[in-house]
Simulated assay, not measured.
Amino acid sequence: MQLLHTKPAPGEDCFARVGGVNYLEILKAIHRNLRPATYLEVGTFTGNTLRLSHCPTIAVDPEFRITGGLPAECQVLHLFQKTSDAFFKDHDPTAIFGAPIDLAFLDGMHRFEFLLRDLIHTEAHCRPNSVVVLHDCLPGDAHITARSMNDPRRAQSRNPDFWAGDVWKLLPILRRYRPDIRALATDAAPTGLVFLTNLNPASTVLQQHYFDIVAEWLAVDLADYGVARLIDEAEPVAARQLVSPEFCANRFWL
């Protein structure tokens, strides 16, 4: 895989190396190129990602603040104003759609244990070739990765308005526990996107090891783990490549 960065000088902020095409443009291209038949998103907020959908959609958010209208070309839309844990406990996405999930975008609570649970639940309703997209997993500096949005360290970031939380931990977790999943990381601005496919809806590995994973990673800080290390291990490709139908066809199929 092509490496799109060089190692920073000691003390250099790596943020400049995660700043390609805006993630909304990439997600728009993914919808256009893959043409999913079903779409699930966790973390809708104002609806910027929701409006990209053209197919039957489930959106989950504990407090919708949708502005700018609903997706114009989406004829079937299910809105669940509850936490993702409550949604997956109370509802069956496959039954709602009448089919597995083709494409999912997970952008809920920015703490790794929440994203891990969302992935566990989502994968169970996917096909092997479904695509799950994770947001905020490739932050460019450690200051925006505190577990609390109100952590004062954010003020030290070049981009203090961003809060990625510690969901970056999903990359090393998946590399260790689920190497069978194919992960493609991109430098989409502002905090990266990670695309997962070659899923196994029957897998219980993450669920079986959930408490061990949380115990192992809860106290790990990106400042100690190393931003450069995270990006080097992820080997991100340029986000602009995801705009290409040919590039997507070579890596995903629905």
Rank of each mutant, 00 (worst) to 15 (best):
L242S: 04
A9N: 08
Y210F: 11
I101V: 14
A234R: 03
S203Y: 05
L115E: 12
H135W: 01
R117T: 12
S53V: 02
E25D: 14
F162I: 14
A238Q: 15
D107N: 14
T6R: 09
T38F: 12
I120F: 10
L174C: 03
L50P: 02
L193Y: 10
V243E: 15
S157K: 12
F114K: 10
A228V: 11
D166A: 06
G68E: 03
R147N: 07
L50I: 03
F64S: 05
L24T: 13
T145Q: 06
L70D: 03
H135M: 00
Q207M: 09
N129H: 15
A95T: 04
E235V: 09
V214K: 06
S244I: 00
V243T: 14
E25F: 11
L218M: 09
E41T: 00
S130P: 15
G20P: 03
A202F: 11
C137N: 08
N198K: 09
I96S: 07
H143W: 15
F88V: 08
Q208V: 01
W163A: 09
F162K: 04
P128K: 04
L40M: 12
P245W: 03
A37K: 14
R154K: 13
H5G: 11
V133L: 15
D92N: 15
T6I: 09
R51A: 04
G19I: 01
D224N: 06
P36S: 03
E216A: 06
A72T: 12
A202Y: 05
P128E: 13
S53R: 03
C74L: 00
S130F: 14
G68N: 14
L138N: 01
T49H: 07
K89N: 06
R175F: 07
T204E: 15
R35T: 13
C14P: 03
C137P: 08
A99P: 08
R51L: 01
T122Y: 09
A164F: 02
L170H: 05
V237M: 15
L40Q: 05
H91K: 02
A9S: 10
N159I: 10
A219T: 13
F162E: 14
R229C: 02
E113G: 12
P201E: 04
L119S: 08
S244E: 08
P152F: 10
R147W: 11
L3N: 04
A189P: 00
E41P: 11
A234I: 12
D13I: 06
A146G: 14
N48M: 00
D161G: 11
L193G: 03
F162H: 12
T67D: 09
W253A: 15
